[in-house]
Simulated assay, not measured.
Amino acid sequence: MDTEMLHQSARRRRSKALFMLAVLLILIAIVFLISMNAGSFRMSAGTVLNTLFGGGTDKEELILFEFRLPRICIALLVGAGLALSGCVLQGISRNGLSDPGILGINAGSGLVVLLFIAFYPTTDAAPVFALPILALVGACVTALIIFGLAYKKGEGIMPSRLILTGIAIAAAISSVTIVLMLRISPEKYQFAATWMAGSIWGSTWTFVLALLPWVIVLGAYMMVKARSLNVLALGDQLASGLGARVGGDRSRLLLVAAGLAGACVAVSGGIGFVGLIGPHIARRLVGPRHEALLPTSALCGALLMLVADTVSRALPMSSEIPTGIVVAVIGAPYFLYLMARSRA
């Protein structure tokens, strides 16, 4: 009887997870169609569909296929990647406030990318595929420093120490970044300032191809390690008692999460809160088991990022608002809400 009840409970969880994934995919498809019409040049839904199937004018095809679709794809990939990274960081640290932006991982990868911008032309397309690798180095080094300082022998990684260490490291890196920005040319300063605000600057198919393998490969590895994340969430002592290699699993997952966040930051700029909000919404929808939580987090992050990017392009402003600012408007109140709940 108990076994049958467990099977029924597992089936209900799977059915609920599949239903939520289907709903999120439908919402993404709807926002996707709306986003293709967002911008200074308006295209009706019929015109968009007609252009997608090869019936549009040269101007409509240029706007849709060379400007809007690559940017939409980047927004989806970045949102999914940052949400997956945040989900893994929250799992291995057992801290619901962990996020690659809050912990300073984005700042570390951003500093390396800014160094690249300072010494190479920003219009040079040849090193595009090197950007995720450079950001990966910065993100991984920063993550190792933060987790090393937050770790205490016998106690593991303390959640409060992790947050405070990440904020301190992020502040230090931001100071170095500001000094560096003051020493670059005015043209590169303008580009760097826009990038730091979270503008999706890499909006070409080249950047899509540069980011896509990182999201697929590292995201697939996270899915393979979903059960390990479930065990790590139980605590170090219990996880060790269940036979998990706590240190090795945590280190590998940390590097993968940092690498994925760094690759996303390389093409999207300093966008925060997606890795915080996405996993929290997903956890409310499908529960804490990472087999369902990881893909749901990815879709939540992709939807959030796509909505923010669509809003940033659709607002009637003289100049486009960086997507990161729109995300911050949504994420900052939610972060304060989570902080208030954690103190309760």
Rank of each mutant, 00 (worst) to 15 (best):
L134N: 10
F116Q: 10
L24Y: 12
L77I: 06
M1F: 13
G262W: 05
G324V: 09
G110K: 10
A80I: 07
H7V: 07
M223C: 06
L77K: 08
E66D: 13
L260A: 06
A38Q: 11
L229R: 01
R11L: 10
L276A: 08
G243F: 01
P279S: 09
L77M: 12
K225T: 06
R12T: 13
G154A: 04
V113L: 14
G247H: 11
S174V: 09
A261M: 02
S9R: 15
P132N: 05
A261S: 12
G54W: 12
G55H: 12
S185V: 07
I92C: 03
D58W: 05
C300M: 01
Q8V: 00
L336S: 10
W214E: 00
R227F: 04
S318C: 08
G241T: 07
A220H: 08
L25D: 00
F116E: 04
L144A: 15
K153Q: 06
V274Y: 07
P132M: 03
R313C: 03
F41R: 14
F207I: 10
R250W: 00
I72T: 09
Y151N: 12
A282C: 01
M43N: 05
A340N: 13
N106G: 06
Q8K: 05
R12N: 14
V215C: 08
G91H: 15
S35G: 05
S318D: 13
L84E: 07
F207R: 08
G259E: 00
F65E: 10
V329W: 13
I200D: 13
T122Q: 12
R341D: 14
K188R: 14
R161S: 09
A75K: 11
L115G: 13
G86M: 10
P295I: 01
T123K: 13
G91R: 12
L149Q: 12
T296G: 00
G248K: 07
V329G: 14
I281Y: 09
F19D: 09
I34M: 06
F116W: 12
S240P: 02
L97K: 15
I26S: 11
A302S: 10
M1T: 10
I145Q: 09
G248R: 09
F119W: 05
P295R: 04
V327M: 15
V113I: 14
W214Q: 00
T165Q: 02
L64T: 12
A258K: 04
L25T: 02
I63W: 05
L336T: 11
A135E: 00
V307W: 02
M339T: 04
I157A: 06
V137I: 02
V265I: 15
P288W: 02
D58M: 06
C140Y: 07
A257K: 00
S318P: 10
L89D: 09
S342I: 14
L62E: 14
G104S: 04
G270E: 14
M305K: 09
A328D: 12
L52V: 03
G39E: 00
L242H: 05
L304P: 04
G331I: 13
A45Y: 15
T206D: 07
P279M: 12
N230P: 00
N50K: 15
L303C: 05
G235C: 03
F65D: 08
V256S: 04
M196K: 13
N230M: 02
L18D: 11
I117E: 01
G96P: 15
T323A: 01
R71V: 01
S109Q: 01
F19S: 14
V48W: 00
W205I: 08
L303S: 07
G96C: 11
S312H: 05
